[in-house]
Write a protein that binds this DNA or RNA. Sequence first.
DNA 1: CGAATACTTAAGTATGTGCTTAACAATCAA
DNA 2: TTGATTGTTAAGCACATACTTAAGTATTCG
Lengths: 129, 129
Amino acid sequence: MLNNQPEADLDLVFQALSDRTRRAIVVRLCGGPASVSELAGPFAMSLPAIVQHLQVLENSGLVSSEKIGRVRTCSIVPATVRLAEGWLGARRTHGERRLDRLQAFLAAEPDSEPQSHEPPPSIPPRSTP
Amino acid sequence: MLNNQPEADLDLVFQALSDRTRRAIVVRLCGGPASVSELAGPFAMSLPAIVQHLQVLENSGLVSSEKIGRVRTCSIVPATVRLAEGWLGARRTHGERRLDRLQAFLAAEPDSEPQSHEPPPSIPPRSTP
DNA sequence: CGAATACTTAAGTATGTGCTTAACAATCAA
DNA sequence: TTGATTGTTAAGCACATACTTAAGTATTCG
């Protein structure tokens, strides 16, 4: 699916990934497309339960599927995996940039003259509706 | 927290990230530590609601906090961000390796002699408890 | 055709999630 | 000490999730 509405998309993607059965399905699909029953095979739960997990995955945009004859074949959507990974990457990058600056700040500490040393905490607040 | 039990950890981490308020808090904390009320500031919801979100984040291992005097200061735990990012990275890597092989397969297709062309779908099943 | 296969739909249930308000600490400052 | 600040705890409510079983619907095969 993917609404192109980043926050809503990330809601759905991370939510989809928060269940280990669904993560296992994603892992399986990264090895190539599979039918619903192939996907259900390894699990102890009922087929409808798996189908519901697949709906969550498809709704999140992590998985797509096509039905041919009586078999539905599911595949991953790598772009969606990248979307989530990208969000986390940005966090890590920003966080680590900040950490680097903080370490530099602490390293150059022995009471040198106060240059543009931004003090570590207290950053301007963000707006969120 | 982090149980060192990868699947359970990922459950908690992805679940924590599946809420946009919590993601906004993570974004904010990537800019540096903050107190509970600083974190609550931008949001329209009650303080206890934010505290509950912080509990989810802390329980997932994405955030740690320490109380000094009457103010609790929260920070991100970059290692946990990396844990989730790493899982997704592994998916992308495997998935794209597979896609590469598939593309190679399709590229070398004009009915050449059947070498060790593994047919694209149908991969050996995985075991999952 | 008739039966097996591969899902699909519907309905129900137990538990979890995301809030709320109200009341209660604990700490700091005048 | 009094009162403001900063957070915590508890209870409750509406809605979402993760299943279940039972009963369908297409499709393909013999």
